[in-house]
Design a protein around this nucleic acid. Sequence first.
DNA 1: CCAAAAGTGTTCAAGATACACCCATGT
DNA 2: ACATGGGTGTATCTTGAACACTTTTGG
Lengths: 234, 234
Amino acid sequence: MPHTYQFARPALTVDIVVFAMDFAGRDETDLQVMLIQRDLAPYRGGWALPGGFVRTQETLDDAARRELQEETGLRDIYLEQLYTFGALGRDPRERVVTVAYYALVNLTGHDVRASTDARNAAWFSVSDLPPLAFDHAQVLDTAHQRLRSKVRYQPIGFELLPERFTLRQLQRLYEVILDRELDKRNFRKKVLAMEIVKETGEIEKDVAHRAARLYRFDKRRYDRLMKKGFNFEI
Amino acid sequence: MPHTYQFARPALTVDIVVFAMDFAGRDETDLQVMLIQRDLAPYRGGWALPGGFVRTQETLDDAARRELQEETGLRDIYLEQLYTFGALGRDPRERVVTVAYYALVNLTGHDVRASTDARNAAWFSVSDLPPLAFDHAQVLDTAHQRLRSKVRYQPIGFELLPERFTLRQLQRLYEVILDRELDKRNFRKKVLAMEIVKETGEIEKDVAHRAARLYRFDKRRYDRLMKKGFNFEI
DNA sequence: CCAAAAGTGTTCAAGATACACCCATGT
DNA sequence: ACATGGGTGTATCTTGAACACTTTTGG
């Protein structure tokens, strides 16, 4: 067999850290992660990141999207490669290298339970996680850090919001991710000055107080700004 | 064979983009990359990034350091994982996924030619590269972008300088990486205000003009600043 | 004494921060 | 009428940008 690799090969997997923002408890907005309860050894019954083996005829991105769809029912979501983990003992069975991804979802509009195979999938707050299988705690932590730093110079936070959102929701999202309070007036001033959100003319419904205006992310404008060497900073 | 992966596996390699700064031509400071001339098919005789297959009993970082040492003689240098490339046709022989790294070296103090196996290694200016094997042009470009953005918020640039350097060298380094001119007075003011470089008391030797003061990077101070949530920005 | 690069301050504009009250709506 | 969160402006401080001349050294 000419031109082929003669050594034993590590196995190759992908794992995905799926983040979502929970706005349910009005004031207790928090960041959530999707986990899968394993039904096979090792770590049977334990919680792990969605993921699985990479096939020889699919790209890494394709593998990540396929596993995500198969295990959680989520599709067409923001997905980005995070880091590749290759420590020796990370899988007790054999040598497995994993290419980790992270994904951002807005919960409204994606039905996780619609999946065929999602019976074991569940959301957890990042601040209250169960013990995780393999080195997944480390993977998750790396993803969390990445999200925190990336959100400061790219508007990926919008991926976590519904299409129409209030400025207050946007602010809470940044507060949760950056883990500090932001001044309401300064925050609104800055976001509006950037002109990357657009008023829809609509307002919130069914709230027991003055209804907030709904905005949406103006990607066209953002892309134009980015090309001119623009820096998104909150 | 219980607990083992039943599908065919992609092969796994590491490739390393080694950057160095060339201060030789006084005014024509430029960024260089190390390439290896291949002596096996495919792309025999072509230029490629140093790299090779990952063994089952070494971590990815270890594989990168081993290949670097074997192919270029470089060791104990700054090395960081970049991105994992897994496009389907990237290696004409078979499916190969590569974990790319980038490395930073200061040329004084590392003798590339000392290596046993470095007869085919050479430095190229990033602005004047030969055609590259596989998808290495893309890998190199990704590394270059990463260097440009990372240098803005972490002082990794110092890895490209000799232990003692002049502020002018530091400025030229940033100018080359960021690809724009910086104001001398403002640059010095900012760098000195950060207090992350320390005067050594020594000065340049053998220059045909006023000799510049030599500084060194103060890592202790930098680490302390980082812990307090400090942001390095040029 | 000339060429070459080192070294040094001030002014101005823009952006960041701090801060408190009135408004609209549902119950 | 009250409770709840929405919405708004100003003053001050900090930071970044622009800018030109004198000093030192070797040849």
